[in-house]
Design a protein around this nucleic acid. Structure first.
Length: 190
DNA sequence: ATCTCGATTGGCT
DNA sequence: GCCAATCGAGATG
């Protein structure tokens, strides 16, 4: 079941936390590739110096001001990074997906990543976009209605122990801890 | 564990 | 053209 608009149009940190345990899915021509979210980070607007929405709107970051539930994809240091927009139209926000646990399409992931170990397939924001074959052409896709790219809720049982920390790779972080991860997962980035 | 170098794009001058 | 940027891989100790 695809997560509905209402899931995304809430406080960004809550969305980031609630995304843990959900499944990011990409239906490619070679088959379905998916993984369970085990690490995420929340980014707000003008009051958040680390956020791309703290500077002027650009063709890329303008999606942060739009509806929640849209794919926001950009290149950093040679890697595509996948985010989902949050909050309602007019209020900027996005969640960066930083790591997954591989679920479907293992052989596709292995060939795209040129790695065999599960812990090397999707354990980082740039790694997971490689493994799921996510790039610019999916920028702006509405995850609540798309058949190509979406996030589904789990019928999952169990209690992922959620931990938090400061965000990774940012020069100017906030006091609040806005990175969330499932500590016991082997696939969290380091 | 630490470093260092390569990667690709968008945004600005 | 220039350069910064929510990173990754490989080498080195």
């Amino acid at each position: 079941m695809r997560l509905p608009r209402g899931f995304y149009e809430r406080d960004t940190a809550e969305v980031a936390r609630d995304l843990l345990g959900k499944f990011l899915c990409h239906s490619t021509c070679d088959g379905l590739v998916s993984g369970k979210v085990v690490e995420s980070e929340a980014y707000y607007g003008v009051d958040d110096p680390a956020s791309r929405a703290s500077s002027k709107k650009t063709k890329i970051n303008e999606k942060m001001w739009e509806r929640g539930g849209l794919a926001l994809i950009y290149m950093v240091h040679g890697n595509w990074l996948f985010n989902v927009t949050t909050e309602r139209e007019g209020t900027p926000g996005a969640v960066l997906i930083r790591a997954l646990e591989p679920v479907d399409g293992l052989s596709i992931m292995k060939s795209l990543r040129k790695k065999e170990e599960l812990s090397e397939l999707t354990s980082g924001p740039g790694k997971l976009t490689q493994a799921l074959d996510i790039s610019k052409d999916l920028h702006g896709v509405d995850l609540t209605i798309s058949d190509r790219l979406y996030i589904s809720g789990s019928g999952e049982v169990g209690d992922p122990k959620i931990e938090s920390s400061h965000r990774i790779g940012v020069t100017e972080d906030l006091q609040r801890e806005l990175r969330f991860y499932i500590g016991k997962s082997e696939c969290v980035s380091r």
